[in-house]
Design a protein around this nucleic acid. Sequence first.
DNA 1: GCTAGTGATCTGTGATCACAGTTTGGGCGA
DNA 2: TCGCCCAAACTGTGATCACAGATCACTAGC
Lengths: 237, 237
Amino acid sequence: MNSTTALAELPQLARRTLSDTVYEALSDLLASGRLAPGDRLSLRQSAAALGVSVMPVREAVSRLAADGVLEVAPNRVIRVPVMGAAAFRALAETRIAVEGLAVARAAERRTATELAAIRRAEAAFRAEAEAARPDRARAVQLNRDLHFAIYGACGLAPLQEIIARLWLKAGPVINLDLRAHPERLLQGFALRRHAEALAAIEIRDGSGAAAAIAADIREAAAFIMARGGLRDAHEGD
Amino acid sequence: MNSTTALAELPQLARRTLSDTVYEALSDLLASGRLAPGDRLSLRQSAAALGVSVMPVREAVSRLAADGVLEVAPNRVIRVPVMGAAAFRALAETRIAVEGLAVARAAERRTATELAAIRRAEAAFRAEAEAARPDRARAVQLNRDLHFAIYGACGLAPLQEIIARLWLKAGPVINLDLRAHPERLLQGFALRRHAEALAAIEIRDGSGAAAAIAADIREAAAFIMARGGLRDAHEGD
DNA sequence: GCTAGTGATCTGTGATCACAGTTTGGGCGA
DNA sequence: TCGCCCAAACTGTGATCACAGATCACTAGC
């Protein structure tokens, strides 16, 4: 029985289908803003670009579409949705509420190990943001790492999944803005909010940490909306 | 320009693909508990039963799997996940947090129209629950209608989608229990909590409404967990 | 009598084909 | 030269085929 018990311990090695790979590839494209809102997507072209058949792309796209990250128009045209100002605001408010929830829980329940991981992530982001010549793509990734290091300490797996989906949905518009406006002074704000959140998490101040993250999200959203790049209704191409 | 503006107003009639139909059919099966945790699902058999090819079933299943409502084991076996006690508890806590959020917002922002709809839904559920010979399936549906009538007043579409997904995930285990134990006295609890929530919503008491719904969810979860039907780890068939 | 091997059958996955609908570009007419 | 129309090329959707791996029942061997 020992051997079987030992065998049961080893992690089931992930079965990686082509659909999963394509899904990740498209997710990356969306999260990094290389696929901007309004961009169209062709199954056959994507399949050809990835060197696979249309089948895996179909499954990946259907999953993305189920999450609202992509949409299939009645014309049967696949594209990344153009979010109106109202929709973007609703998404931001939802993020503030849900992520605030996760942060508050994380602050109250974090272990010493998790706190250390959060500290490392904060330091890494700070280092990149304060660098003489910061790499934007890397900064975005480190920002994401920091946020999810915090959310990972909330102890609620379903909540983390929800947040991941929200980020995927918000990714294109946020990163598109980041590409269009590199001179983003927002990083100063982000740094301050992150520091506030970290300090609150250290003293297990749930509501304080939630307030910091809420401010982080709210300021970033306000920054993007101030650009006026979001139209409402009239999806005029 | 008037005509085009007017035309833009009318709702794009939903383009209904076979995949969507299959998705709804499977969702119904899951939500109603006819597909119980641990049950296996065959693409070809499902396709044959529905009178379609495997293609639409594949897409529907992949979407369900992306939501965690179904799972594909490394053996490539599709089945509805067996939730351990810990996972179920985490799901319940997430529901309490997220749905509490939605209810609190709904209580504070509900319009008179929305309040009326909530009242109607509450009355409908009460009538069915207090009937001499209540129809379980119908009671479940009315309970769902009531909850979503409330959540619909929160004004945050993304939040509603999140909750719908959570319900889909919790549906199989909850309704399986409901099938196995018809003599569920929980309806008495549910009625009281619903009344409390309605009263709080009427006076725009956000935290009160959240507390009522939280109690509703918590009691239902405790009821199910008391059955001991949820194993942890060792997915012994 | 019981275990180990083995073949048939079923599984999901991926590729290819077929089709109806849309879009688009070029050519014809005014 | 401008506008319309038709046809070719695209779009996603669905069905069918092909394949590797897993499962299971059966049988041969100990």
